[in-house]
Every structure is written in C-alpha cells, then in structure tokens.
C-alpha cells in the first residue's frame, strides 16, 4: 500500500461524494420544502446520462450536449411534477413512495425501449480526457477533477442561492413554515415547481457527469438513489450543509473502504478469510456508519430546524 494509491483513492472518494451531493441537495430540498419522498430522483439522474449519450452524437460537441441534457432533465422534472407528483404533496409518505416507485419502473423500462438493453458509453471530451500530475507520483484524470470543480461550483451556487436571494429566502421560509409563505402572497405552486425543477436539473447534471465514467444503462439511478438516502439520513433531512458533509463522508468511506478494508483485514486474518469477508464488510461499511451515526444522533448530523 502506497501513499499515492491512498491519495488517488481518497480523491476518487471525494469525487464520488460530489456526485452524491448533487443528488442529495435536490432530494433534500424537495423533501424539506414539499415534504415529498421522491424515489424517482434516481430516474432523473439516469435520464440525464441518457440524454447526454443521445445528444453527443447529434451535436458533435460534448459541452453543448451536456448543457442540453441538463436542460432536458430540468424540463422532464417539471413535466413529471406537473403530471404526477403535484397531487402527491398532500398525500402521506406511503402514497408518495408507491407512486414514485411506479415511476421508476416506467423510466427504467422506457430507456430500454428507446435505447435498448445494452449499456451505452460516452467518451469524455478530448480536452478533459488526459491526466495531470498533482504530486510527484500522483497522477489523476482531468475529467474527475473537473467533476469536483463543477460540484464545488454548484455548492457555492446553492450557498449563494440559499443565503442571498429572494428565492432562497422563500425556500428557507417554506421549509420551516409553509402557511407563512402562502400568507406572504407568494405563488406557492410556482415555487414548488421551481424547486422541483432545480432538484431535477441537479440530478440530471450528476447523471451527465457520470456518463463518461460509468456505463449508461437502465437502473443506474437506483443504486445511487439509495446511497443518496443514506447521505440524507446521515446529514439530516432538509439541510444542504448536512448533505454536503455527509456526501463527502459517504463517498470517501465507501471508496476507500472498498479498497483498503480487504487489505487491512488481510494483515490481520489469513488471506483466505479476508478475501471472503473483506468485500462483504466493505460493502456494508457505509450502512454501518449510518447506523452508528443514527444511534447517537437520530435526526442526523445537521438537523434542519423546523
């Protein structure tokens, strides 16, 4: 085990955490403000990736395709909100879970119908496809660094939006007191649609950025959705700050755990045992982390005040 390997893996963890943050920020906003449990958030991520894969050959330019794909995710999110989810805000969580579960089945199948069952691959743009040397002996893909940069930019954007704009003020007020925002004469229906669209665009952006590093396939949104839930539970529902901290935490623990836990176990137990047990424990590590955090802080690390 070398330091450079460790650094590379830690960076991979941060990069994964950034993707989770983009997902969690949208989901936690939608939950905090509209009180909606949206399982279909992962589908929006998947659709973002598929839009990119479809648009790159058409436009011939990765960046144009990426911008269009995020816009398409935003539009799709708004359409889904208008058609199906709007009626769910006043229903209980069980109805929301079932309904959005139905949406997942629909989206997972629809991409198979349109783009086929085999996975699609997207090449990163040439300008981002090289490696850079960060430290002597530590080289890292430019594309992954770009993801981190974009994630950081989004985090700053959300911070600004939340703290320094009228929309952010309404979002914060809406999370703590729905009736009051309505009393202020704000068009709450429009506010909800906007927030949902923002969440959808962030999920689409995460999908777009995942396109070149993962295979684009049906169901790709499901596993990240559940990790996003873990992030939100750890961070505290409705808290963007909690989402950021927990995303990075989960990303790093998951990535680093998968690589190093088997090695650590190998040092303690026999190779046969560790090769059997290692992957099992590594795959469980973030859930154990979640259980431990919940045990001490049932409301998560940064519970939003309501």
């Amino acid at each position: 085990m070398t330091l450079s390997l460790f650094l590379t893996q830690a960076l991979n963890g941060v990069q994964f955490g950034v993707m989770l943050f983009l997902m969690a920020a949208g989901l936690t906003l939608v939950f905090g403000i509209m009180n909606l449990v949206n399982l279909a958030h992962g589908s929006l991520y998947m659709m973002g990736a598929y839009f990119l894969a479809a648009l790159v050959p058409v436009t011939g330019n990765f960046f144009v395709a990426a911008v269009l794909a995020v816009a398409a995710s935003l539009a799709l999110g708004i359409v889904v909100e208008l058609i199906a989810l709007r009626t769910l805000y006043r229903r209980d969580h069980l109805d929301q879970v079932l309904c959005t579960f139905g949406l997942i089945l629909f989206f997972n199948e629809i991409v198979r119908m349109i783009w086929g069952a085999t996975a699609l691959f997207v090449q990163p743009p040439p300008i981002l496809s090289g490696f850079v040397q960060l430290l002597p002996g530590v080289i890292y893909p430019v594309y992954r660094l770009t993801i981190m940069g974009v994630g950081l930019a989004v985090a700053i954007f959300l911070y600004w939006l939340n703290g320094h704009t009228r929309l952010g003020m309404l979002i914060r007020a809406g999370a703590s007191n729905r009736a009051m925002v309505g009393a202020l004469g704000v068009n709450i229906t429009l506010l909800y649609t906007l927030v949902f669209g923002l969440g959808a665009a962030l999920a689409g952006l995460a999908g777009v950025m995942a396109g070149p590093i993962l295979s684009v396939q049906s169901g790709m949104g499901d596993s990240i959705l559940i990790l996003t839930f873990v992030v939100i539970v750890i961070g505290g529902i409705g808290s963007i700050r909690g989402a950021l901290v927990a995303s990075i935490l989960v990303g790093v623990v998951d990535t680093v755990g998968r690589v190093f836990l088997p090695l650590v176990l190998g040092a303690v137990f026999s190779p046969a045992t560790s090769s059997k047990v290692g992957p099992a424990i590594a795959s469980m590590s973030i859930y154990i982390l979640m259980a431990a955090i919940l045990f001490f802080r049932p409301q998560g690390l940064f519970p939003a005040h309501r």
Partner: peptide, 23 residues
Amino acid sequence: TRGVYFIMITLAFSQMLYFLGVS
C-alpha cells in the same frame, strides 16, 4: 426514528443485506 427517516433507513438496511448477498 419515524416518518420518512424510517422509510429510508429500512430501505438502506435491506440494500445492505442485498450487497452482502452479492459479496
């Protein structure tokens, strides 16, 4: 926990066992 936390946590634990099965 209760409410939506309960939904997410039960989901997460079942997924943990799923990955355990896979591994």
